[in-house]
């Protein structure tokens, strides 16, 4: 199975998707030394964006990874429900999330997601560390709590710079 973060992000940008990078990749881009093997995004549920997102996911050969043998591709109706769509694509695992934490949506998060320049014309909105920490605290799962000390220390060190 390949995993190509840049290709995933570039495909989303090529389709003009309104999205925010969250989760482990977001933490890494903000400077936290954590590891992950998927890309988590929160997307806008505006109808035009859902149409573009379905097109992008088709381009990525995305299917739900929970039951790969069924090869169930996400449709606009699935995405409109704003739930968690855990997908596998030709560039690796992609979690397409309607909301995170206590129901925080794209509209809630976009003001806290400055764009990061990844070079070669790849501009990506990434959730800031303060909000990422708040979301992880809200979720409160063991996995999310485990990474909080690293995120808090990264935030503290980044503020000193």
């Amino acid at each position: 199975m390949p995993l190509q973060y840049r290709s995933l992000l570039q495909t989303l940008n090529d389709h003009s998707i309104e999205y925010i990078v969250v989760g482990g990749v977001g933490a890494v881009l903000r400077g936290a030394p954590v590891n992950t093997l998927d890309l988590d995004i929160v997307y806008s549920v505006e109808p035009d964006n859902l149409v573009r997102l379905v097109s992008a996911l088709e381009n990525l050969d995305a299917i739900y990874r929970g039951q790969p043998e069924r090869r169930l591709a996400p449709k606009a109706s699935h995405l409109a429900a704003a739930g968690q769509n855990l997908l596998i694509t030709r560039f690796g695992p992609l979690d397409v999330l309607g909301s995170i934490g206590n129901g925080r949506t794209y509209r809630d998060l976009v003001a806290h997601s400055p764009v990061i320049d990844l070079g070669e014309g790849l501009l990506v909105p990434v959730l800031d560390l303060e909000t990422l920490i708040a979301v992880k605290e809200e979720v409160g799962s063991e996995k999310d709590r485990a990474v909080l000390p690293v995120l808090r220390r990264t935030l503290e060190e980044s503020r000193r710079r």
Partner: peptide
């Protein structure tokens, strides 16, 4: 943490890759 913060975002993504 300090080493990661010393990298550019593109370099951080490369580390993860």
């Amino acid at each position: 943490v300090r080493w990661m913060l010393s990298l550019t975002p593109a370099e951080r993504l490369e580390v993860l890759q």
